[in-house]
Design a protein around this nucleic acid. Structure first.
Length: 737
RNA sequence: GCGCGAUUAGCUCAGUUGGUUAGAGCAUCUCAUUUACACUGAGAGGGCCGGGGGUUCGAGUCCCUCAUCGCGCACCA
């Protein structure tokens, strides 16, 4: 064993071997810990779900950072003798995965998903997802993640499918899910609707045209999208605008670009009289604002753009033309007929689809929605600030648990961001016209509709062909992974079937601030509604990992760093430290090779400290010798350090705790304590020598223990070299010994 | 338009509730060293804590204001 110390530390050799030992031990599973007497059955629990990585490929540095943070939390809890559960899993990521596979198939076979058909296409996606999954799992192992693999979940597996269908049915029965015809965000490229928070705004240069529909029409309007104006059914003005008062209520029949339009002038307070001409051409079918105006004034809708972003009008001028082409044609028409009054350059936010980059086309469609404003009677008893029988809405539930501080968000400035977002929340469009995902559990037969977990009895029922937004299933993650909807619910009994009783609410959710809305908010919605509990007590939001220039890491920028390459060059422990240190919650961080290098040196330092203690100081005495005052002081000093870092870790300040340990081990233990030990070991009295040898071992062991959550591999390796029989991963945290 | 964050040494960042002389790592420079470890040690230089104003016995820290950068939301006729 000791011979190993004489050669430099080789992370490549040690890490895989050690991970296999951990996994083999079963201690990632809290049931095994209880069974083998490592953890008390009634110990407090610590539970955390892994934000399931998308099965769209491989993990990046940001994921590695997330894994490192969560593993630190988990290992720290396990060493504090808590019943510790970290649940791993992956996310099917509906649109993201499907569009990736579609691209691949198009490239390799020149075929679209429709050429393959639903079943064959899904088979291809399944294969791709499985490969990505396997890669991700192996990356997690390389990082040292102490997750309970026996409880691994997938957002699209059988159990999660039951959870999804159960949820859908319950919300449907409660009237919280409804089917409605309205303007939605349509992605022509992905051929599906998307929700409001899957829309990304891009600033672009555009032209604002001011014109009249026809010479006889009295009011000029402004728009950046002249091609949609063939779908206008009204012009809206502010009720107090004296310029237009005389026209309000009148209807004009006119010809515009070869289309017959019937335009009614209406007064609506949503119109800003100072913008443009103060008159707004209302296009109910292609703008959600206009749709609402049309609802208020009972105006007809006239769709003029189809799902392929082409004009669907009769007019020979525009029929079948792409919207951009049609725009130019309409502008030419306006010029030709002397109707164009003004052209101004403006910067404008263009809506694009997050996953495909397609320009969003607002279209009226029949879709499924979750009603966030509908009042219902709250059926659960366990929320502290919402009582059974209270009238609530999903929005109110989402707001109250955060406002009442049942859930803490770190850093707390995100509380404001969260509240603001919820307050502006509109109904959540959950249906997608893609194939990869949970199919909507609704069947149709003529006018009849059936919603259920299983298909209805009898012939001629046809299932809705749409699938659900990926966040619908992710929203259930904290409890769908713990046995819901069929938990036994026996508190204190071990085994996965009792997980919901034993491990929910989860202790902490650790994720990126960029998915506060799509994910964290949805989990709060689903958990408070379905389980009657908060999904987690604390939300720790981490920032983005950027390159050393502060740029976002992405494949297109070519600055992508593969965590596996870093692990190969520097070791997983060094990668973890480099990602963790200097990175507080909510702040983006910059990473450079120098940082990885620095912590590789640190690993080497620890290795050599152990070599010095074992070889130069000699073996640890079997019996504790008399300890000198000087050495007591050293031990007490280290104790104080451990107390400090424990407190910091309790406050989630891992970046501080890690740095302090680093500093202590290198610049105190190695540079000072070991240096001053040399003359003592050489020329000291027997009492001094024995005391110092014992003390060096104590300091080393405590250092390894405290450092274990941060650098699990090298500390475990040294622990075994020191001849310890147990695994360091289940050793008690220094303060508990 | 509304809101949030950042601004501290050449670089990356700490700096808890206001409290001695503002810290760390990396980088730079000097010196040491057949050393547990060159993946080393000792030391040095380097800061108007973004600008201005205020509160206070005392401000990097609290308040106001401006500037630059970044982000979120809304608008997007």
């Amino acid at each position: 064993m000791i011979e190993k110390l004489l050669t430099p530390y080789n992370p490549l050799d040690a890490e895989d071997r050690i991970y296999a030992i951990w996994k083999e031990s079963g201690f990632f599973n809290p049931d095994v810990c209880i069974e083998k007497g490592v953890t008390e059955k009634d110990a407090p629990y610590f539970s955390i779900v892994l934000p399931p990585p998308n099965v769209t490929g491989t993990l990046h540095l940001g994921s590695a950072y997330m894994l490192a943070l969560q593993d630190i939390m988990t290992r720290f809890a396990r060493m504090q003798a808590k019943r510790t559960l970290w649940i791993p899993g992956t996310d099917h990521a509906a649109i993201a995965t499907q569009s990736k596979v579609e691209k691949q198939l198009q490239k390799e076979h020149g075929k679209s998903r429709h050429d393959f058909g639903r079943e064959a296409f899904l088979h291809h996606v399944g294969t791709f997802a499985q490969e990505s999954h396997d890669t991700i799992v192996s990356q997690m192992m390389k990082m040292g993640c102490s997750v309970d693999w026996s409880r691994e979940a997938f957002t699209l597996d059988q159990k999660r499918n039951i959870a999804v269908k159960t949820t859908f049915k319950q919300m449907y029965d409660d009237g919280l899910i409804y089917r409605g015809y309205r303007v939605v965000n349509w992605d022509p490229k992905g051929q599906t609707t998307i929700s409001d928070d899957e829309v990304v705004y891009e600033e672009r240069q555009s032209v604002l045209y001011t014109f009249k529909y026809s010479p006889e029409f009295p009011i000029a309007i402004s728009t950046t999208r002249p091609e949609t104006k063939v779908g206008d059914t009204a012009v809206a003005v502010h009720p107090d605008d004296i310029r237009y008062k005389e026209y309000v209520g009148k209807t004009y029949d006119l010809e515009f670009c070869g289309e017959s339009l019937s335009i009614t002038v209406v007064a609506d307070i949503s119109v800003d009289p100072l913008f443009g001409t103060g008159a707004l051409g209302v296009t109910p079918a292609h703008s959600s604002i206009d749709w609402e105006i049309a609802q208020r004034h009972n105006l007809p809708q006239k769709p003029v753009i189809n799902e392929f972003a082409k004009m669907s009008v009769e007019s020979p001028l525009l029929s079948g033309k792409k919207v951009l082409e049609a725009r130019e044609l309409v502008v030419a028409y306006l010029k030709e007929h002397d109707l164009l009054l003004k052209e101004e350059a403006v910067t404008q936010n263009v809506s694009t689809a997050e996953r495909t980059g397609g320009i969003i086309e607002p279209l009226p469609k029949l879709q499924w929605f979750i009603n966030v404003n509908k009042e219902f009677v709250y059926p659960h008893e366990n929320l502290p600030h919402v009582k059974k029988g209270d009238i609530v809405t999903l929005k109110k539930l989402m707001l109250s648990v955060v406002e009442e501080k049942n859930i803490d968000i770190l850093p707390d400035r995100f509380v404001k961001v969260y509240t603001h977002w919820i307050e502006n929340l509109r109904d959540w469009c959950i249906s997608r016209q893609i194939w990869y995902g949970h199919r909507i559990p609704v069947w149709y037969k003529g006018e009849e509709i059936y919603c259920g977990i299983e298909a209805p009895e009898g012939a001629d029922w046809e299932q809705d062909s749409d699938t659900l937004d990926t966040w619908f299933s992710s929203g259930l993650w904290t409890f769908s992974t713990l046995g819901w909807p069929a938990p036994k619910g026996t508190l204190g009994e071990t085994g996965p079937e009792n997980d919901l009783a034993n491990y929910h609410p989860t202790t902490i959710l650790e994720t990126g601030y960029d998915i506060l809305f799509p994910w964290v908010a949805r989990m709060i919605l689903m958990s408070t509604y379905l389980v009657g509990a908060i999904p987690f007590k604390t939300v720790y939001l981490h920032g983005l990992v950027r390159d050393n220039k502060g740029q976002k890491i992405s494949k297109s920028l070519g600055n992508n760093i593969d965590p596996l390459d870093m692990i190969k060059d520097y070791g997983a422990d060094a990668v973890r430290m480099a990602l963790i240190i200097g990175t507080g919650p909510g702040n983006d961080s910059k990473i450079s090779l120098d940082k990885f290098k620095a912590y590789k040196h640190f690993a080497n330092k620890i290795w050599n400290i152990a070599r010095f203690v074992v070889t130069t100081a000699g073996p640890k005495p079997d019996v504790k010798p008399e300890i000198t005052d000087q050495d007591y002081a050293l031990l007490e000093e280290q104790n104080e350090l451990v107390r400090e870092i424990t407190e910091e870790m309790d406050q989630y300040k891992y970046y501080l705790a890690g740095e302090k340990l680093y500093h202590y081990i290198w610049h105190r233990f190695a540079d000072v304590i070991i240096e001053e030990s040399k003359p003592i070991l050489k020329d000291g009295t027997d009492v001094e020598k024995n005391s110092r040898v014992w003390t060096l071992y104590c300091i080393l062991e405590t250092s390894l223990t405290a450092l274990h959550p941060f650098m699990p591999f090298i500390t475990e390796e040294l622990w075994s070299i020191l001849g310890k029989k147990n695994l360091l991963m289940t050793e008690k945290w220094p303060l508990l010994r």
